[in-house]
Design a protein around this nucleic acid. Structure first.
Ligand SMILES: NC(=O)c1ccc[n+]([C@@H]2O[C@H](COP(=O)([O-])OP(=O)(O)OC[C@H]3O[C@@H](n4cnc5c(N)ncnc54)[C@H](O)[C@@H]3O)[C@@H](O)[C@H]2O)c1
Ligand SMILES: NC(=O)c1ccc[n+]([C@@H]2O[C@H](COP(=O)([O-])OP(=O)(O)OC[C@H]3O[C@@H](n4cnc5c(N)ncnc54)[C@H](O)[C@@H]3O)[C@@H](O)[C@H]2O)c1
Lengths: 219, 219
DNA sequence: ATTAATTAAAGAAATATTTCCTTAATAGCG
DNA sequence: CGCTATTAAGGAAATATTTCTTTAATTAAT
């Protein structure tokens, strides 16, 4: 409507994007129970959200539901996985194999996170040469050699906060386009690099504040 | 304006709440550099956000900035910590001492997460009796005994998805008011219980989708 | 002291997101 | 076979959030 150039699809909003994996996980459970079709109101009741919200959110996948029947579970799961990129092999490098880094490495051995960590890097000699499952911990310097050959687009940073900016720049120079940043450091990178900050402090902040609010209401 | 009852302060919005720890971390770095006063535009420039946004967000703490000077760093940090509850000892139980649970336990040994895990619980006999730092892993059954004595308000769930609902209900029955849920399970609990879902899938979803979007623009 | 520049605060406007409402489709039922 | 209840879709309204504007305060410079 406003811009003349075509194929500029409006970017899907973050709140919607954040809800999509929740639908996906719910639908997977539902499919296991052998349910073929499910309606938006049913999804909404289970996930405690508005049914119109559900309809609008799911519409981004392009899947159409049938009135009086709902959505085809199988079809919807596939469309969501496809839309979110969970069914592709999104290869990633992980830097910093400490507590959190190891947990992430161990995790993806069992369950799919939507991302496949193909190598991990650390500067600590005690870590280098070890492995978690099939993922080997390599010398940090090797990042540059490997990046040339493998065309890895995603970097995960689980180093101490102090070195995060340097690591991020290195990753970027190795061709990484998206960085999943678990440190508290605010990364200063060109806008074209996608930075996903996952700071646990934000979750704690919201939770503690709500807890505090609720205690005030009670008295 | 609409409700007659007083002292019903409007709940601070989630986006704002999520930004507050980011300011806090930034200000701590700034304080280390010996900076006494800092203005909203300066904060905005560093954190790449609008300065009015900064002013509005920080206003929730009640701290006033001085024109031409900005905010007092020290005062602001304290106010933020106080508002978010980070300076109180928010004692918590952790249930499920696997990869992620252990990482969280190890983490808070070094850095403050705003929460103090005082005990961890597991059903796996191999885990029971072990400890991470000062935090002991106890038999899950002991949760009920301990909860009576200690007046713990926060529970952290890092168990497999399948048992999360049961664990959540147990925690609730032990007097826990807020649950930090790392599993993909959508917990079905009374509204008075505060549930903070921290699913890594949501972060991955947003990141992968944005990456996909950016690749489309490039071609 | 006076002026100019910077800044927070408060309110207005714009934008984004959610909720509501209407419409059309359709499966199940009588 | 037609009716009814349910439902998705699309648009409108309401709400929430962010950005823009104006104002007043205050400090630093002259
Ligand atoms: N562990 C958690 O539960 C947790 C929770 C929230 C946030 N975090 C954040 O995640 C980050 C990591 O936390 P952690 O507990 O895993 O820390 P950690 O100290 O256990 O691990 C950091 C790892 O990074 C490595 N490293 C240091 N400098 C490096 C460099 N220049 N290049 C490559 N590797 C390097 C270290 O050798 C170490 O193995 C921190 O920013 C922390 O704030 C962790
Ligand atoms: N590890 C990660 O990086 C990661 C990332 C994202 C999400 N998660 C989620 O976090 C949860 C835990 O993941 P994980 O990798 O740590 O799993 P894990 O299997 O390593 O750990 C689970 C722990 O829970 C214990 N447990 C099982 N049943 C229990 C019960 N009824 N009561 C108490 N304890 C019980 C197990 O003995 C085990 O120690 C999962 O829901 C997972 O989806 C983990």
């Amino acid at each position: 409507m406003n811009s003349s150039k075509s194929n500029i699809k409006k970017q899907v909003s973050e709140p919607t994007l954040r809800r999509l994996p929740v639908y996906l996980y719910f639908l997977e459970k539902v499919r296991e129970d052998g349910i073929i079709n499910i309606s938006a109101p049913t999804i909404g009741k289970n996930l405690k959200c508005d049914s119109t919200q559900v309809v609008k959110d799911l519409a981004v996948t392009g899947i159409k539901g049938k009135p009086r029947v709902g959505y085809n579970t199988y079809e919807l799961i596939h469309a969501l996985e496809d839309y979110l990129g969970f069914n592709r092999t999104n290869e990633a490098f992980l830097v910093g194999t400490g507590n959190l880094g190891s947990a992430l490495m161990a995790y993806q051995e069992n369950q799919s996170l939507g991302i496949k960590i193909i190598a991990a890097f650390d500067t600590n000699e005690k870590k280098i040469g070890t492995h978690v499952g099939n993922i080997h911990v390599l010398e940090y310097k090797k990042l540059f050699h490997l990046a040339e050959r493998l065309n890895v687009k995603i970097g995960i940073i689980t180093t101490p906060n102090e070195v995060a900016q340097d690591v991020a720049e290195d990753l970027m120079n190795c061709g990484v386009k998206a960085i999943w940043n678990f440190t508290a450091t605010i990364l200063d990178l060109p806008g074209k690099i996608i930075v996903q900050n996952t700071s646990l402090s934000t979750s704690v902040a919201v939770m503690l504040r709500r807890l505090n609010d609720s205690e005030k209401i009670t008295n």
